[in-house]
Amino acid sequence: MTRAATAEQGQKIRARTLALLRGAMAIPAWPALILLLAIAAVVQPRLMSLPFLLIVLRQSVPLALAAIGQSLPMIGRSIDLSIGGVIAVVNVTLALPVFAGGPVWMSLAFPLAFGAVVGLFNAGLIAFVRASAVVVTLGVSVMLVGVSYLISGGAPGGSVHPFVRELATGRWGMLPVAGGVLVVAALMAGLMLRRSTFGHALHATGASYSAAWLGGLAVRKELVVAHMLSGIFAGLAAIILTGYIGTGTLNLGADLVMASVAAVVLGGTTFGLGAGGVLGVVAGAFALTFLANLMTGLGAGKPAQLIVQGAIIAGAAALARWREA
């Protein structure tokens, strides 16, 4: 090989490394995850065992599902803060005797259908009435939490369908069933974003609503679908979450709203720009869950976790803007 060819190859490798680095910065979740694992390996080596990592994976499933859902409206420059309400209603509903003792399809179909209806309602107001997405979905969340209190009469409890519990806590060998649910859901969402007209058009709409509209895209229909899917994913997250705790509880899912936004931003997606894809979002959810475990293991309580979570949202958002500039 001649010297020139070697130099050229060296340059190519350097360029490729640079591109890789830039790619890594594009999705803060990956460097964050590596950093967390490195810290854990030093201070809490027991967290690094495979069984424990699988437990973290299982724990992260509801957040990951909610975050995949959340990423869709965010790519289209909208937001869904109503997922907490959806989860609260689904949780107390699945704990009703009718659902716990009824046929299993009810416990599976209701959450998804309910999420879709809420998403449709949100999108109607956001896309057609053109009201502020933040305020609309906040209002819907308040309403739904009220509804969940009504359903449970303020005193939730009861039990859920055994299949729902199995879905959330069951294992195939060492592998959690919930992890399988997440993989299937993430694959479907990823395929949709990368390959379907919906995915391409949603990215375009997020990049510029006016240009998408003038380009003849069905901008409002996309927003409707994005919000419905966000609701459906929230419903799915609610099934798994309800399966974990096995009973009805007050305002389950309130924590998941902010955490889902954090996971999305960590995964490289901000308002109008889905650079990180579904994998980034899942990595973001896993990183956040791992962080919570790490901090708990170090004796840091919820306050410290909230502070770190807040810093992560701002940090990841700042990083995204910095990359654009």
């Binding site: 390959r195 007209t197 995915g199 391409h200 058009a201 375009a204 380009g215 003849g216 895209l217 229909k221």
Partner: peptide
């Protein structure tokens, strides 16, 4: 450029 081909297609169709 490909946005020109998306208009009028069903959302579930492959892009």
């Amino acid at each position: 450029i490909a946005v020109g081909l998306l208009s009028g297609k069903g959302l579930a169709q492959p892009a």
